[in-house]
Computed example of a mutant assay.
Amino acid sequence: MVISVLAAVAVIGIGGYALANADKKTAAASPAKAVLSVKLITPKVMEWAQNVSANGNVVAWQESQIGTEIGGLRLVEVNAQIGDVVKKGQVLARYNDETIQAELAQVKAAVAEAEAALNEAQENANRVRQLGTSGSLSAQQITQAMTQERTAQARVASAKAQLVSAQARLNQTRIAAPDDGVISGRSATLGSVSQPGQELFKLVRKGRLEWQAEVTASESAHIKVGQDATLTVASGKVLSGKVRQIAPTIDTKTRNLIVYVDVKNEDTALGAAKPGMFAKGQIAVGQAKALTLPGSAILLRDGFANVFVIDAATPQGNSKVKQVRVQLGRQAQGLMEVSGIAATAQVVASGAGFLADGDTVRVVK
């Protein structure tokens, strides 16, 4: 019995010794984790332009509706099409004016007749004035002559007023552009009969456009009239502009505010930018200091931006790194604005993808 127990203990001892020797061999066979050599940088402080991002629609600054004031006339000419660049006073369409021309001729004849009657009445009145002091004419004759003169004068004035009216009606048969601009709509149809107030054309005045940019209430506090802006339209073209006006009220549904930006569109025919387009852009609101790092120092992991900073030194003269989450801002010239680290932090310049929180690194210069 005792011999059996001693034998078992001896076997266990031999087995333990063998296992210990195996663990030592395994440990000796597994090399230590390599230390990564890294270079360090500190965030760079830059004067960076501050921009407010915005979205909005491109619309016509003013769109004039061009119509007719007369009715019952047939359209005999249409001289403008959608997209045409027109000048102020250019005739866009013309109605048949034969009836108006006849009325004008009749009114001119009435003016001539009234003027002839006035001349006769004035001559009679002048004779009466000369003889009135001699006592050869009665008071009734004098009054009658003076009345006829005044009546003739009134008839001339009335005839001339009718002449002005007839001339205005004749002018209305020619539909002219009220300003320089671009034809954006046309409903004029050759042969159609006019109706008072009927719209014939739409005109984007001076081809001038504006961008109605929506910004949040908090962002609107930084925006002022006269600030520069840039916007990108659907074609990818970037246009410049200037803040002309800021809406005095905020939309209660979206809690956004409209900023009206005059667009500098070099193409007089509206070109790349057209009313109704959606555009994204930025409004420059000033300069501010910003901490920046190159993109190589930033690691995107699990949907967050991170950097590695030197945390502590090791007894062997190396350093341990710490993973720090940062927030990214604007980008320019290969640099990215960051926040969440100190301006004096020592940041691993590159190779962050090979590191983990707490890793040991060798700093090289």
Rank of each mutant, 00 (worst) to 15 (best):
E214M: 12
V204M: 00
G207R: 04
G197Q: 07
T216V: 07
E219S: 14
K202W: 04
Q212V: 14
A217C: 02
T216M: 06
A217W: 05
K202P: 08
P196A: 13
R205D: 06
L209E: 10
W211R: 09
G207Q: 08
E214Q: 13
S192A: 15
L209S: 01
K202L: 05
Q198L: 07
S192L: 08
K206I: 01
V215D: 06
R208T: 15
S194M: 06
R205E: 11
G207D: 07
R205T: 09
V204Y: 00
K206F: 06
V215K: 03
A217R: 09
A213L: 11
A213S: 11
Q195L: 08
V204T: 09
F201P: 06
V193K: 03
E214F: 10
G191V: 15
L200C: 07
S192T: 10
E199V: 13
F201A: 00
G207Y: 01
R208S: 15
G197V: 02
L200R: 02
V215Q: 08
L203M: 04
K202E: 06
G197I: 06
R205W: 00
V204I: 14
R208H: 13
W211F: 14
A217F: 07
L209D: 12
R208M: 12
K206V: 09
A217I: 10
A217S: 14
V215G: 08
L209A: 07
L203E: 01
L190G: 03
V204P: 00
S192G: 12
E210R: 14
L200A: 08
E210I: 12
E219R: 10
E219T: 11
Q195W: 01
V215H: 04
E219V: 04
L190A: 09
L203Y: 01
V193Q: 06
G207C: 09
R205M: 04
E214W: 05
S192Q: 14
G191M: 13
T216H: 03
E199P: 15
G191Q: 14
S218V: 15
S218Q: 15
T216A: 10
R205P: 00
F201T: 03
Q198R: 09
V215A: 07
S192V: 09
S218H: 13
K202I: 02
L190N: 00
L190Q: 03
L209Y: 04
V215I: 10
S192W: 01
A213R: 10
S194V: 10
V204A: 01
Q212N: 12
V204K: 00
P196E: 03
W211Q: 11
G207A: 09
R205G: 02
E219I: 05
L209G: 11
E219W: 08
V215S: 06
L203R: 00
